[in-house]
């Protein structure tokens, strides 16, 4: 589906109850995607600061949220932790 079409479907407010529940599923999806991308970033050698910059949050915020949640075999680069 094209992005413009997605926006049209997502903006349909004819059934707000169903729409709100769908947004809740979207949040879950966004959280799963964020965790996967943070893990991929750390594996590729990016540091917490670079990840925070890309997400538009502070380094402390991203570190607090993900330091324990990531795959423990990933060793984040020391310079930027």
């Amino acid at each position: 589906m094209e992005s413009a079409q997605i926006a049209t479907v997502a903006a349909d407010v004819s059934d707000p109850r169903a729409g709100l529940r769908a947004v809740a599923s979207l949040r879950v999806l966004a959280d799963r995607l964020e965790l996967r991308q943070v893990e991929a970033a750390l594996r590729s050698g990016m540091g917490w600061q670079a990840i925070a910059d890309a997400l538009g949050v502070t380094r402390q915020a991203v570190h607090k949220k993900y330091a324990k949640r990531i795959d423990p075999t990933i060793r984040p680069s020391r310079r930027s932790t």
Binding site: M1, A7, A22, A24, L33
Partner: peptide
């Protein structure tokens, strides 16, 4: 359930 709700937003995600 989650797949159907995401589809209602026009999103297909098979993670």
């Amino acid at each position: 359930l989650h797949a159907a709700q995401l589809e209602s937003l026009g999103i297909t995600a098979d993670l």
